[in-house]
Design a protein around this nucleic acid. Structure first.
Lengths: 157, 157
DNA sequence: CGCATTTTGTATGTAAACATATCATTTGCA
DNA sequence: TGCAAATGATATGTTTACATACAAAATGCG
């Protein structure tokens, strides 16, 4: 038996990739259960997209995708579904006939206003087992790493 | 204008859910690019599944799913694709004819042995912008939160 | 101006990720 | 022992997530 050892390989639970996946899993589950409990029917991505449109009404899909760090194709599908729900509207831009300007409908604004406090409150439940200080520290580190990546990306040729 | 304020809403970049999604995004991208660069063709989940099978040969799919914290249905699909690649084998269990015992094939063992060091090395690139100390701290916090959730789940009725 | 290049959105295909339902089998208990 | 409940795998459907390719339109440069 060549590879008989006490600890054959690093445990999965200590690999950064695995831990981050677990956090993401928890995060989306908390989002789904708490928004559903509040009578809302939307996904994390749908909320992020609506938030971006709320803050930049008339934004085109490519800018929207860049703003919330998603793929252009993914956002296309997300907007499709938001449009089907009647929460969002697509208009062909007058400046650029390739672009579609996205805005919230009246119903969309209502849903977003309802969802915002729920989503803000639920953030606290995403990292269970951490003290407020640890929670804050975690977010700082995450933000630092994410920003590092963003600035690197923006420096790319 | 009723809701005219300096900062209308919490920026997306400071929400835990968004930050974690970004980390997850970076993580999978680093995994994909570095494994591909090493001549490997596998996804993070496929690697995790192969690692679990490597450590517990003959494990059934449900136990495997529980071990790496995935849905049973998802793992079914993952094993399908690993089987198609010829890296994994499914055998109907003699103890329980509902269960399928999964093992690595010879080719699967070879691929796993090749992938393991690559995946271990790539972990360091998943959190760019953090010093080694910060990196360690981040993992500790992530682990603490994840374990907290696990133990809570196991206490559930 | 004219044309190569870039950009916007969409289509297609693959792979998660999970809820829900179903079928076969096993288990637990009255 | 017999049958209800639980369990393992699969099927189905929805939503990300992204690569690649494409058509239409805009841009930039010689």
């Amino acid at each position: 038996m060549i590879d008989e050892r006490i600890e054959p390989t690093t445990p999965l639970e200590s690999l950064a990739g695995h831990l981050i996946r677990r956090l993401h899993q928890t995060s989306t589950q908390v989002f789904q259960s708490q928004t559903k409990a509040a009578g809302l029917d939307l996904t994390p991505v749908q909320f992020a997209a609506m938030k971006a449109v709320h803050e930049a009404p008339g934004i085109d899909q490519a800018s929207l995708a860049a703003r919330i760090a998603y793929d252009r194709a993914t956002i296309g599908g997300v907007i499709d579904r938001l449009e089907q729900k009647g929460w969002v509207q697509r208009t062909i831009s007058l400046r650029d006939r390739r672009a579609r300007e996205v805005t919230l409908t009246k119903a969309g604004k209502r849903v977003f206003a309802e969802a915002l406090p729920v989503v803000q409150d639920l953030q606290a439940d995403i990292l269970p087992g951490l003290s407020p200080d640890e929670h804050r520290l975690f977010l700082e580190l995450a933000q630092k790493s994410t920003l590092g990546r963003d600035s690197l990306a923006s420096l790319a040729p």
